[in-house]
Design a protein around this nucleic acid. Sequence first.
DNA 1: CGACGATTCAGGGAAAACCACTATGTACAC
DNA 2: GTGTACATAGTGGTTTTCCCTGAATCGTCG
Lengths: 220, 220
Amino acid sequence: MGMNKLRVILVDDHAVIREGLVSLIDAQSDMQVIAQAGDGREGIEQARLLRPDVVVMDVSMPEMNGIEATRIIKRELAETRILALTAYDNPVYMRQLAEAGATGYVLKRSAAQEVIGAIRAVASGANYFDRAMMNESNAVGSFNAKRLRGEIKSGEITDREQEVLLLTAHGYTNKEIAERLYISVKTVETHKSNVMAKLNLKNRADAVRYALHQGWLRDS
Amino acid sequence: MGMNKLRVILVDDHAVIREGLVSLIDAQSDMQVIAQAGDGREGIEQARLLRPDVVVMDVSMPEMNGIEATRIIKRELAETRILALTAYDNPVYMRQLAEAGATGYVLKRSAAQEVIGAIRAVASGANYFDRAMMNESNAVGSFNAKRLRGEIKSGEITDREQEVLLLTAHGYTNKEIAERLYISVKTVETHKSNVMAKLNLKNRADAVRYALHQGWLRDS
DNA sequence: CGACGATTCAGGGAAAACCACTATGTACAC
DNA sequence: GTGTACATAGTGGTTTTCCCTGAATCGTCG
């Protein structure tokens, strides 16, 4: 085993969580945390300066989110691997992160050992995507069966789907949405179930959570 | 002089974060983590079994949220102190938590040392509310003061009604609300229809609008 | 042209929500 | 001890959503 420990940077806006992860990672003999950052911008600066092996990146942060930060870091530092760490098992996020250059994606609900393993995996050049995610995306089967015969990737959200999802999150019933958009209730049902499958939202509460997260819901 | 360490239970749905906190807390000489739980329900079971000194409780969790779990634990275990740990400085949450019996409230963006300090504080019987919060509002103080004087009586809407309305606005179904609050679906229907009549809300969309206006809906 | 994606719509059965009305136990005040 | 407020729960009936399947129309792009 080389003397060289894996050099890790942590980017997360929650200090407590960051410090918890530090003590977990530093307890490993083969890796160490060389810097921390509280938002994407800071993370980029630290990465530029220190050229770490792995950046563990939270997805949702103030200032600059993890997707944009990932994109910028990868553009400048091709060698550095990015491991996304997020609370949301959202296939669209996963896809956007993969496109931005992340090679790993683990959920905050995973065990610590899994995160540690993921850091080792991406550092070695492998891809690591959370098992829970891969299983979930099978559960979206009825949608996939329709359009994605053979393909695994889930498409982006269409305008109409987003419109329906937004109105759903605002609490409108299918009937109200149908009237507002001059379409039938059945069409609303279709769009809703499709978009919810794409985003891995299981119920209306998930839809509200997603909309809040996107900043779609504001007092007006 | 107690050689007895403070016995702490952690409740948070994110395993990584939990384990990070464990290593932080166990590194202290005067406290130790005796159990963990991934949702409110589990947390209640563990607390019943182990009667800890302090429960560190995340607010937003699947199955049962921290507020309801706090209420139930306090009802059964008056001695146990509850320290709420949350990502968002939402005065409504803080008020509800205080009402439910939590005696401390710290933000995830705080430094680890502050969380450790807060655990010691609540364990000693003191209240601990995050400095960042107190600047935002003195809601807790005024709320507790009123509560002591028995002036809570929010006039129109009862606590239970507000709770049901909030969950409705968050998109939870009657069934989900009933499970969360340990009451029957019929009771949820009653509260919901009463509060909506009081506020002249005609449908769920109105409820969402009202909640947004009250600042009840935040990304979490 | 042919494939694909986006949008639209429908049937049918199970589940859930919605509505109006009634009712019980508890706590607290006067 | 009577009244009021509150939380709880029920009956019974109507409406709506949810879930699954299938399918027609209209662009665009190679």
